[in-house]
Design a binder for these strands. Structure first.
Length: 581
RNA sequence: GGCGCCGUGGCCAAGUGGCUAAGGCAUCGGAUUGCAAAUCCGACAUCGGCGGUUCGAAUCCGCCCGGCGCCUCCA
């Protein structure tokens, strides 16, 4: 341990091994190796699988921002009992099952903005390293062969239990189905002999496949070395998975495997489902009958057996940025209660950022997403200035970085982002930036402020590119129809016909479209795939009432303008229908 | 039974020894608006309970109540 670099000036990381926050030191000065336990790809990913990748994506971004060169590895377990079972169920090969779910996993990661992973090693691609690793443990006397299996002999590792704070004696368990092959009940498999028709690899112990724990020891060694900086994973992996990794790697190499063990909290489903039957034996009390807490409805840990799943659907309905933002609002070591309303609430918060970006575009004619922003901590420093707005901006940035330095406190950091929005909006108000006589110097200040916002948001991996919309404002025909609606309403307002103007606005409100009257004209936002038809119906109604009032100028305008965008109206007995030609 | 974690306003959530306890959502006033929306200003908690340590605690210690995790595959 004495060979670690000098500690970082400000950054502290919580270490599961010491149960404390520690100053950040690296094995090699200026470089960081990170290993995150990825999924076993026997089924589609669920949102719980995204917690680790999202926070570690932020961690990597922050470390890079702080000047480190980072190598981040996320492994994929593509050989396992569950994969074999799934392949048999579906009449596919194990490889096909793996390919399918890896593709799904990667799509999900991309949707959530997890783009900084450097390597995705697959267990089946590292078989030589795995077998060599096991061989070394056998040669050194830490592992033994038994009927074609190879087991790690836990009793030989005097430090076993140091991560999860357990003693070998205290370890319960019956040793699993293979107890008779083991010397100690806590011994775990490094190599499992193949049953007939199972995928297998050749080794000095015969045909077989690796155990789960050894994969990570071998793959991390291959890509990051015998000692590396940060090893992450869900809290549920501390025991036995990570404890076993430590045992394997440290017995094999006689040196620390990892400097910092970083574990993320787990998601809990907050649906009525919850944990129903489980855990009846172990502690025979729990007079949960009167539990009926008024806030009820909290369920147990997210997992497939609890009905978790459909991440792709969730992303489709909520959008990746919302989900990422939702996950980042809470500290990574905390448990997060997950439900869709909570994600929607996060989305409402995000909207205030998007509105600011639009305001920025109105003022400057430029796109927030094109703004230049500092990529590094040093470059982003704001020149001290007596200007109150700049001082407030700088203070926010300092607090943001202070929060990130404190074990990646993204929740606190996000608070500062909201603070920046307020500063920016207030500045726009005070400096009259939406009027004609705005000062160029003030516009420049606004750009600098938003540039800082973008710099910090980039660390969290948000606001790096415009949302891609389906329906709503992304729909060209809807946009054209909305412009017609807005023009009609503008005419009504110009002639002080507020009843009509309000009727229009009230008519589109239920469709999820919101109007905002501004100096330069009316803006609209919102809407989904069902909005277009609603807008057309509204236009048809407006035309009908105009005709009823003998206002044929207006009714003809509506029809003609619709014709311009290739929409045809046909008056039928049952009402008017619209169609796009 | 063993090892841990958590309990902050209506909801979510920062803060873990010391200025007026961040921020978001919701709500209520005010400015602004034809009315709205957006924006700004303001209002809204003493931190599960009890006791202790301390000049001083949401923050440390003890006990209690409540919620959760791991000990079996799980991010």
């Amino acid at each position: 341990m004495s060979t670690l670099s000098e500690p970082h000036q400000t950054l502290q990381i919580y270490n599961t091994l010491s149960k404390k926050k520690e100053p950040f030191r690296t094995v090699e000065a200026g470089k960081v190796g990170i290993y995150l336990c990825g999924p076993t790809v026997y089924d589609k990913a669920h949102i719980g699988h995204m917690v680790g990748p999202v926070i570690f994506d932020c961690i990597k971004r922050y470390l890079v921002y702080c000047g480190y060169e980072v190598n981040w590895v996320v492994n994929l377990t593509d050989v396992d009992d569950k994969l074999i079972n799934k392949a048999n169920e579906r009449g596919m090969t194990m490889l096909e099952v793996a390919e399918e779910n890896i593709a799904d996993y990667n799509e999900n990661l991309t949707a959530l903005g997890v783009t900084s992973v450097d390597h995705f090693p697959r267990a089946t691609d590292c078989m030589d390293e795995i077998i060599a690793f096991i061989g070394s443990l056998v040669d050194q006397g830490f592992a033994y062969e038994s009927e074609g299996d190879v087991y790690f002999e836990v009793g030989k590792d005097t430090h076993y239990g140091k991560l999860s704070n357990r003693t070998v004696d205290a370890m319960q368990g019956e040793g699993g189905g293979m107890a008779q092959r083991k010397r100690g009940l806590a011994d775990f498999a490094l190599w499992k002999s193949a049953k007939p028709d199972e995928p297998s690899w050749e080794s000095q112990w015969g045909q077989g496949r690796p155990g789960w724990h050894i994969e990570c020891s071998a793959m991390s060694k291959k890509l990051l070395g015998e000692t590396f900086d940060i090893h992450g994973g869900g809290l549920d992996l501390v025991f036995p998975h990570h404890e076993n990794e430590i045992a394997q790697s440290e017995c094999c190499h006689t040196k620390p495997m990892v400097t910092y063990w970083a574990h993320n909290g787990l998601l809990r489903a907050s649906s009525a489902a919850g944990k129903v039957g489980g855990r009846s034996e172990r502690d025979g009390e729990s007079a949960s009958a009167d539990g009926a807490s008024a806030d009820g409805g909290d369920g147990g840990k997210m997992s497939r057996s609890k009905g978790a799943g459909g991440l792709a659907d969730l992303i489709a309905s909520q959008g990746g940025e919302r989900i990422r933002f939702f996950l980042l609002r809470t500290h990574y070591r905390s448990t997060v209660l997950f439900n869709e309303p909570a994600i929607e609430e996060a989305g409402i918060g995000l909207d205030s950022f998007y509105r600011l970006f639009k305001r920025y575009a109105r003022i400057t004619g430029k796109d927030f997403y094109d703004l230049e922003a500092a990529q590094t901590r040093d470059a982003g420093a704001i020149a001290s200035d007596s200007d109150a707005t700049q001082a407030a901006t700088s203070a926010c940035r300092e607090k943001f970085l202070h929060d990130m330095d404190d074990d990646f406190n993204t929740g606190g950091a996000i608070g500062e982002l909201f603070e920046l929005v307020k500063i920016a909006n207030k500045f726009c108000d005070d400096a009259n930036l939406e009027s004609e006589d705005k000062a160029d110097t003030d516009v420049a200040k606004l750009e600098q402020l938003l540039s800082t916002l973008k710099e910090l948001a980039s660390i969290l991996g948000i606001f790096s590119q415009p949302l891609t919309k389906t329906g709503g404002s992304g729909d060209e025909l809807l946009a054209q129809a909305m412009q017609l609606v807005i023009d009609l309403r503008a005419e009504a307002r110009a002639s002080k016909n507020f009843a009509t103007a309000d009727a229009i606005r009230d008519g589109i409100g239920p469709l999820g479209v919101v109007l905002e009257d501004r100096a330069g004209g009316t803006e609209w936002s919102g809407g989904d795939e069902d909005t277009l038809d609603g807008i057309m119906q509204l236009l048809i109604e407006l035309r009908q009432s105009a005709r009823a009032n003998k206002d044929f100028a207006t009714s003809d305008t509506i029809r003609d303008r619709l014709a311009e965008i290739n929409v045809t109206l046909e008056d039928r007995a049952g009402g008017t229908e619209w169609s796009k030609s």
